[in-house]
């Protein structure tokens, strides 16, 4: 699905050349849930932009679905730490936004609005927001906004979901709730996920594979397969094997921060 082959990226910063990524290689299989963790400023977000084609690598090549990435990939849904909903649109209309842009929906959108609305309402139902479809984003809590943001990222049934610390701004309880929401959405729809996070428990709970990045210039220093049985209940987080995994990941990151 995704393949980064010896990718480097540098750009001109205020104080000369900055290398955000150096010789990074990464493979994510179709339908896989991959998490990327690392110390702050290690180029995790840069990685996301490279995969979606928003920026081009300085060296190396990025492939998505077997094709080299030359521009925005158009098959990706994205969600960020900030929900970024449009305040002049209701939740439902926010969720419908991608359908007004992505072909072939954009051509059909006006004619088949009822069909798309029903679809959006179904999706909102999955994340528990069906009754809030008519509300405006600023009438909702941060967790609810983030749920809506996830729906917006998934409404056009993208093959790839890119998440950049989507739950970082939420409180611990809401975050765990949304882990479960994301887990269920993923198991139901079967898309490929790349989750960038600095929350190791989040990565260990959700992902099939966890990639650890080094400090800037970033590159993947370790890849761990997480093989807890699915579907995973939240209780997994309190098992010794889980704690050990988080502990090891933490050790690895402490190590790369020192280096």
């Amino acid at each position: 699905m995704i393949c980064l082959d010896d990718v480097s990226l540098s750009y001109k910063g205020r104080s000369g050349e900055v290398t955000a990524l150096a010789h990074t290689s990464l493979t994510v299989k179709q339908g896989e849930f991959a998490a990327v963790v690392g110390p702050s400023g290690c180029g995790k977000s840069t990685l996301m932009k490279l995969v979606t084609g928003l920026i081009r690598p300085t060296a190396g090549a990025v492939f998505v679905e077997g094709k080299p990435v030359k521009g925005p990939v158009k098959i990706a849904g994205m969600a960020f730490q900030n929900a970024n909903l449009l305040p002049w649109r209701s939740v439902l209309d926010n969720v419908l936004l991608p359908l007004e842009i992505v072909p072939p929906h954009r051509g059909r959108f006006r004619r088949e609005k009822d069909f798309y609305r029903a679809r959006a309402l179904d999706l909102l139902g999955v994340v528990g927001l069906r009754d809030f479809a008519g509300r405006y984003p600023w009438e909702m809590s941060g967790g609810m906004q983030q749920r809506a943001s996830l729906c917006r990222a998934l409404i056009h049934e993208p093959a790839l979901l890119m998440l950049d610390e989507p739950f970082a701004a939420l409180d611990a309880f809401t975050r765990e709730e949304l882990w479960v929401v994301l887990r269920d959405l993923w198991q139901r729809l079967g898309f490929t996920v790349v989750l960038v996070t600095h929350d190791l428990r989040e990565a260990a709970f959700l992902a099939d594979t966890v990639h650890v990045m080094s400090a800037r210039p970033g590159r993947i220093v370790e890849t761990r397969v997480v093989d807890f049985l699915r579907p995973r209940p939240l209780e997994v987080c309190y098992e010794p094997a889980f704690t050990d995994l988080v502990h090891e990941l933490r050790g690895k990151i402490a190590e790369v921060r020192q280096a």
Partner: peptide, 29 residues
């Protein structure tokens, strides 16, 4: 216009005109 929101739309293949129409112009109101 929030750059992240622009990224969301660009990753969907939105043109500059799309971004203006859907986000830029309404938010200037």
């Amino acid at each position: 216009t929030e750059p992240e929101l622009e990224d969301v739309l660009r990753a969907l293949g939105a043109s500059k005109l799309d971004i203006m129409r859907k986000v830029g112009i309404p938010r200037t109101a």
